[in-house]
Computed example of a mutant assay.
Amino acid sequence: MDKALEDGDLSELSSLGHFLKGSSATLGLTKVKESCEKIQHYGQQKDEAGTTDEPDEKLCLSRIKEILVTVKEEYEEVEKVLKKFYATATPAAT
């Protein structure tokens, strides 16, 4: 996503947002899913809900940049929880 954002590639950002939204939903990562859905919508030049056109490409890229910071923070939180869970759920090697 960082590369697509750097390139200003809204189509790629939408596609990646869609992919990560689905993966996050499958894993039950609701916050990450919701943020990725917003990226998908802005990549399609829609508002965050995906209901209204947003013709300003720069505004969409700016909002994606802000959301991407949030997504990374949310992912780090989830990663810590999952690592802790699986570390305690896995029997110690003998």
Results as ranks from 00 to 15, higher is better:
Met1Trp: 09
Lys3His: 07
Ala4Val: 08
Leu5Ala: 12
Glu6Pro: 00
Gly8Trp: 13
Leu10Lys: 03
Leu13Lys: 02
Ser15Tyr: 08
Gly17Ser: 09
Leu20Gln: 01
Leu20Val: 03
Lys21His: 07
Gly22Val: 02
Ser24Met: 05
Ser24Asn: 10
Thr26Ala: 10
Leu27Cys: 14
Gly28Tyr: 13
Leu29Asp: 03
Lys31Ala: 15
Val32Phe: 02
Val32His: 02
Lys33Leu: 05
Lys33Asn: 09
Glu34His: 12
Cys36Tyr: 06
Glu37His: 12
Lys38Asp: 03
Ile39His: 00
Gln40Gly: 05
Gln40Glu: 13
Gln44Ile: 14
Lys46Ile: 07
Glu48Met: 11
Ala49Gln: 15
Ala49Val: 12
Gly50Asp: 13
Asp53Phe: 06
Cys60Ile: 01
Ile64Ala: 01
Ile64Gly: 01
Ile64Tyr: 05
Glu66Cys: 03
Glu66Phe: 00
Leu68Lys: 05
Val69Asn: 05
Glu73Tyr: 07
Glu73His: 10
Glu74Tyr: 14
Tyr75Lys: 05
Glu76Ala: 15
Glu77Asp: 11
Glu77Met: 06
Val78Met: 11
Lys80Thr: 12
Val81Gln: 13
Val81Met: 12
Lys83Gly: 06
Lys84Asp: 14
Lys84Tyr: 07
Thr88Met: 15
Ala89Lys: 12
Ala92Trp: 07
Ala93Tyr: 15
